[in-house]
């Protein structure tokens, strides 16, 4: 479904991604973890070309992400993306946030788009907040609206870039709950996250990244029980210590 082939990226002379290789199969959930500044966010942002790459190839479905002949807008509309900072549109109500892209990108009729928006808000447990503006919602609620917004385009793939890192601790659970539900519905997902509980319970594979390199790609149980690379061992030990 998603394939990274020798992906490299530089900022000037600083190499942020180093020959990344990997596959995510349909219906798989991959958690990317690693120390901060390791290139996790950069990697996930390359999948819908929010970041360009200097070398290699990224394939989503049948499409080469960096093929200049393919419409980047069509590519992006088929990939759901959830941000650390939610990035809801503050001037639009929750249901307008969800319905905006289906109307402007897919050309859906307004009635249809709003029906679907309410359905999705119901799915993330926020039907009652459909007319609220982002500023009137808590962080956890905002992030759930953001997930509904991404789902509105019916993407076969969802990308999560540290979706719970900006949340107060008591709100993390409600967002993870929605993500678990999605995973059990069979959604293909890549999640950059520090929530190791989520990784253990939901992920099919864990990729460990440090300094732009994928040092380990394995099942969660193996990753937490017997990490092989020294950096990964230290990382797991640090988590245990908390």
């Amino acid at each position: 479904m998603i394939e990274f082939i020798n992906v490299s990226k530089w900022y000037g002379s600083h190499r942020v991604l180093h020959d990344v290789n990997g596959r995510v199969e349909r219906g798989e959930v991959v958690v990317i973890c690693g120390p901060s500044g390791s290139g996790k966010s950069t990697l996930i942002r390359t999948v819908n070309r929010l970041e360009s790459i200097n070398n290699g190839q990224i394939i989503v479905g049948e499409t080469d992400v960096n093929d200049r002949k393919k419409s980047v807008n069509r590519l992006r509309s088929g990939i759901g993306f959830v941000f650390q900072q939610f990035n809801l549109f503050p001037h639009l109500s929750a249901k307008d946030n969800v319905a905006l892209a289906p109307i402007t990108v897919r050309g859906l009729k307004k009635g249809e788009a709003y029906d679907r928006a309410l359905e999705l808000l119901d799915k993330v447990g926020l039907k009652s907040k459909a007319d609220a503006f982002p500023g009137q919602l808590s962080g956890g609620q905002q992030q759930r609206v953001a997930i509904a917004r991404a789902l509105a385009m019916n993407p076969p793939v969802m990308l999560f870039d540290e979706p719970t890192s900006a949340l107060d601790p008591e709100m993390v659970g409600e967002v993870l709950q929605v993500m678990k539900q999605l995973a059990s519905d069979g959604m293909t997902m890549i999640c950059v996250t520090h929530e190791m509980g989520f990784a253990r319970d939901v992920a099919n594979r864990v990729w460990f990244i440090a300094d732009g390199e994928v040092l380990e790609s394995t099942t969660p149980s193996e990753f937490f029980a017997t990490p092989r690379h020294p950096r990964a061992q230290k990382f797991v030990a640090d988590i245990r210590a908390h």
């Binding site: 819908n48 929010l50 807008n73 069509r74 590519l75 992006r76 509309s77 088929g78 990939i79 993306f81 941000f83 900072q85 939610f86 990035n87 809801l88 549109f89 905006l100 892209a101 402007t104 990108v105 953001a146 917004r149 991404a150 385009m153």
Partner: peptide, 15 residues
């Protein structure tokens, strides 16, 4: 405006 606004909009496939 925060750059995330553009990121989010473009991520949805909006031109």
């Amino acid at each position: 405006l925060p750059k995330g606004q553009t990121d989010a909009s473009r991520s949805l496939g909006m031109s």
